[in-house]
Design a protein around this nucleic acid. Sequence first.
DNA 1: TTCTTCAGCTTGCATTTTGCAAGTTCACTT
DNA 2: AAGTGAACTTGCAAAATGCAAGCTGAAGAA
Lengths: 153, 153
Amino acid sequence: MTNSDAKRPSGCPIAFGLDTFGDRWTLLIIREMLFRGKSTYGDFLAADEGISTNILANRLKHLEAEDIVMKRRDPENFRSFLYELTPKGFDLAPILIEIVRWSGRHDDRPDRLTEMVNRVENDREGLGREIEARRSAAQQNRAASERQGQQIN
Amino acid sequence: MTNSDAKRPSGCPIAFGLDTFGDRWTLLIIREMLFRGKSTYGDFLAADEGISTNILANRLKHLEAEDIVMKRRDPENFRSFLYELTPKGFDLAPILIEIVRWSGRHDDRPDRLTEMVNRVENDREGLGREIEARRSAAQQNRAASERQGQQIN
DNA sequence: TTCTTCAGCTTGCATTTTGCAAGTTCACTT
DNA sequence: AAGTGAACTTGCAAAATGCAAGCTGAAGAA
């Protein structure tokens, strides 16, 4: 789906955002990339929530079409692919961080994990640097791929 | 749905948030309340995106169960109801604001409306005050309702 | 050079969720 | 007593999701 065939062409930026990443899985895939440095199809399949393979394939295709992720061959393992966030994808970080903060305040289940919440509340700078590092690494990779005219399929 | 019967009990705060408000309609309902001061079932039905009545009823029930909205009779029109955000609901504001900012940066459709984006980028303080005003008005109303032991159905 | 494995999908089908339209209830209004 | 407006509820068709099984193409093993 590109921007022009949005399901809800209401002009509202909230609606636009939800049309782009507002389903039950997309932000979890982004989380894997942004906060956990994951990058392969198998990584995403292995995430705790158990996304099914057809949905994952569908969402990755959608995210590529939206220019939120880029797919390229893994230069170290040529039968695998790497999915990496674009700048547009990295820009989703503040949204995810605010979701983490909200959940940290309002999830009162006894067994909730607080690692990510603690990170966001007590080491926002460190987290920011980590994400920034991933962002510039991704940029290096994009540049390198372009230099090599790298094939994608 | 209460916190304890989450669809994805992974312990991740992102997953928790998505289980609570991560469908295609919930945040649009919240938007009507938070940014547009809307409060009735009819208001929500009339929103641009055209939510259907059964889905709306379902989501409002869910939001009430999650303590994100409260429902009470309209004291000025006793056959109508008012849906108002709780503090937990108001706390969603930063998430919506970050979605607006992201869309402002990345929605490049020619006909996109920028009113809300402009507001967020150029009058964040004014917007903050407006939301804060709604929050304290809601608190007054909750207090008043409790004083009167107001019935809800 | 064929055989196996691994990563990344695609396909088929049952279940669930969504969307649309029509009908119901209850509190007023006339 | 009949009518109207607001807030739902119900029934059913269409779409999305979830699960399991199968396919494909690159690498490494035999």
